[in-house]
Write a protein that binds this DNA or RNA. Structure first.
Length: 662
RNA sequence: GCCCCCCUAGCUCAGUCGGUAGAGCGUUUCCAUGGUAAGGAAAAGGUCACCGGUUCGAUUCCGGUGGGGGGCUCCA
């Protein structure tokens, strides 16, 4: 047999020409796919002289994708075995798992999923080999005549996007046959591949849920039924993933919002409209107060604006043109009608404000402005109302009424770069003060289809934002075409305590609104010039940030944010008066302290305070009272007994002042 | 908005194959005076989300509305 010269994992080797990656990597069971000359290939693919071959382990990012995509295939096979009339959509790998879209005769039930999962386990146990077969468009169309969605993919092969390319991308059209024990195909699917060599190599998977999803992601297309699953290189990793999900569920802000009595969404008010209870009110006020102080230090000026306005304002700003469907419909006032119902006198339309910028522009324009006033920074906790589609509402993080910590900076073009730079530093430091540590940045650039303005302006702004972003030494991701219609933006993405990312602050440059509102200032040479406008929100929405922090801290807020900082617990009734005095002293020191004078036993009071996630319990009995002391019980169960009252107050105050977590 | 699922006491949930309901926690009162995560007893508390339909009879079946959940699409 002739031999060929190849490079394996960076080492030149000579092997017999019938050797395939599966033989070359036979020693290492974790290798499930190979990278041949930079492209992912099945372990059974043929090699030729000069190939550069690298083994790809199942736990590498590529390996995980192949594992998950292969599991999606097993899912599709199981579905068609169980429900023969089901048509196939696509089945790509996604973060932590995979999905497959189907058009079933009727939507899947939870019981269906169990049945399908059982069938999947049989297929995995069967050890079916994934065998690649190259076909032609004509043959594929014939073979898959009963699969209308697959045929559509074949038709759009060239112009496919990221997701569809999983099925039909690459230079050749391929079908994968699953071979049973007898070597005969038991099932086939159009697919680009690659796959694991065998279904047996799927170590751990689980179906998660079914949901509707539009075919190829467009709401104009029919809705298919999607099944989500997860797959991992080991059972342990699957278990860890499921535990992470359980942990996320435990710290869901909607659940904690109720358990900790922070806020609610009364049905009587309407979907997406929250009320904050006293405890939530304290957290929120602490958040706002600190933000307000920091903004003062940074040279922001505080303004207020009304919640409703005549339509003309949003016509000027362009929002009615671009976002009317996202606004609450207008209130029509003073309209007069004839007896037959026709309009005698046109009414005045008022809208709830979906944003604050037009109001700030009017404040800017309320008098002439000089270059000496710039940068002018106007800040408002502005409550806005957006008619979000009912399906997108999510607790307090996606609501219909919410309050932005909104500011608009008016500056000269020369000042723009410096302003963006200091602004981004300010934003990140403030987020750090609230306890978020792990960030990356995203730069959203122009979408030519959905934007206005000159190329030069867009480019200048985009580059200024990029420069400011790069100066932070954080990872920077490009979001091509993701900008709003009026200008590019940087958004700050933060990772929370369990590794989920949240979009936080945004900084947007805007050349449009100054033009539309004809904003001007007198330049130093006496000419009139147009300012640049920068929109920015740190929290985005206070409610949303509240929700994110609630989940980040799992409701165990650091003392400076905690609704109740100290719960005083007497060992017995006899010490209630003493602790009453202690609480008075704490309150005098500005500490939010409460006394549990109920007739519960002490143990029960400890439990109650623990479940309310109160940072400090101060307990006192006879010994403490005699010594003028208290005993600490911390959230983690640790205790420190006999602490003199003054010392206790100092310790708590210090933690509050430093915004430390305890 | 679209697909699927859900709505029973303040909360978490049982339950009624159609004959108007139950537990635990919480609340109130009483007893108990207890050193670090649930002491005991009694009581109050529900038009079974709302509106229609089918039925002798609907919390239960059907339809609609409202609210919620998981996704999709969207997010100035």
């Amino acid at each position: 047999m002739a031999s060929i010269n190849i490079t394996v994992d960076g080492v030149a080797r000579s092997v017999e020409s019938d050797q395939r990656p599966t033989h070359i990597f036979a020693e290492d069971k974790s290798i499930v796919v190979a990278r041949v000359n930079g492209e992912l290939r099945d372990l059974w693919s043929e090699l030729k002289d000069g190939d550069v071959v690298d083994g790809v382990a199942i736990y590498s990012p590529d390996g995980l994708s192949v594992l998950r995509h292969s599991t999606a295939h097993v899912l599709a096979q199981a579905v068609q075995q169980t429900f023969a009339q089901t048509r196939l959509g696509i089945g790509p790998p996604i973060r932590d798992g995979f999905y497959y879209d189907f058009e079933p005769e009727r939507p899947f039930t939870p019981e269906d999923l169990e049945k399908i999962e059982t069938t999947m386990r049989k297929i995995v146990k069967d050890g079916q080999r994934f065998k690649r077969r190259v076909t032609t468009e004509a043959d594929a169309l014939k073979e898959l005549a009963h699969e209308p969605y697959k045929c559509e993919l074949i038709g759009i092969k060239s112009g496919g996007n990221e997701e569809t390319s999983v099925e039909v991308g690459g230079s050749e059209l391929t079908i994968y046959d699953n071979l049973g024990r007898d070597g005969e195909p038991v099932w086939s699917d159009l697919c680009r591949g690659p796959h694991l060599p065998s279904t047996k190599l799927i170590p751990a998977f689980k179906l998660m849920r079914s949901a509707g999803a539009y075919w190829r992601g467009s709401e104009k297309n029919p809705m298919l039924q999607r099944i989500y699953g997860t797959a991992w290189p080991s059972q342990d990793e699957l278990n860890a993933y499921l535990e992470m999900l359980a942990e996320a569920e435990k710290r869901d802000h909607r659940k904690l919002g109720q358990e900790l009595d922070l806020f609610s969404f009364p049905e009587e008010i309407g979907s997406g409209l929250a009320v904050f209870h006293p405890k939530g009110g304290i957290v929120r006020r602490a958040m706002e107060d600190y933000s307000r102080k920091r903004h003062e230090d940074e040279g922001y000026e505080f303004v207020y604006s009304p919640h409703i306005t005549k339509a003309a304002l949003f016509e000027t700003s362009g929002h009615l043109e671009w976002y009317a469907e996202g606004m609450y419909p207008p209130m029509i006032l003073d309209e007069e009608h004839h007896a037959d119902g026709t309009i005698k006198r046109a009414g005045q339309q008022y809208y709830m404000k979906p944003m604050n910028c037009p109001f700030h522009n009017l404040i800017y324009r309320s008098r002439g402005r000089s270059y000496r006033e710039l940068p002018l920074r106007l800040f408002e906790f502005g409550t806005v109302y957006r008619y979000e589609k009912s399906g997108v509402l999510h607790g307090i993080t996606r609501a219909r009424g919410f309050t932005q910590d909104d500011a608009h900076i008016y500056c000269t073009k020369d000042q723009m770069a410096g302003e963006l730079d200091s602004l981004l530093t300010f934003v990140l430091n403030l987020l750090r003060d609230y306890g978020l540590e792990d960030f990356y940045l995203e730069l959203s650039t122009r979408n030519p289809e959905k934007s206005v303005g000159s190329d030069e302006d867009w480019q200048a702004a985009t580059e200024a934002l990029r420069k400011a972003a790069l100066a932070q030494n954080l990872e920077l991701i490009n979001d091509e075409g993701g900008a709003a219609f009026y200008g590019p933006k940087i958004s700050v993405q933060a990772k929370d305590a369990i590794g989920r990312t949240w979009q936080m602050s945004t900084i947007q440059v805007d050349f449009q609104l100054p033009q539309r509102f004809e904003l001007e200032y007198a330049a130093s040479d006496g000419t009139r010039a147009r300012p640049v406008m920068i929109h920015r929100a740190l929290f985005g929405s206070i409610e949303r940030f509240f929700g994110v922090l609630t989940e980040h801290y799992s409701g165990a807020f650091p003392p400076w944010l905690a609704p109740v900082q100290v719960m005083a617990i007497p060992v017995a009734d006899a010490f209630t008066d003493y602790l009453g005095d202690v609480v008075k002293a704490l309150k005098a020191a500005g500490i939010r302290a409460e006394l549990d004078a109920s007739d519960d036993r002490m143990q029960k009071k400890v439990r109650n305070a623990q479940m309310q996630k109160i940072p400090y319990m101060l307990i006192a009995g006879e010994e403490d009272q005699k010594a003028g002391a208290v005993s600490f019980r911390y959230r983690n169960g640790e205790q420190k007994n006999g602490v003199p009252l003054a010392e206790a107050i100092a310790e708590i105050s210090a933690a509050v002042q430093s915004r430390a977590q305890v």
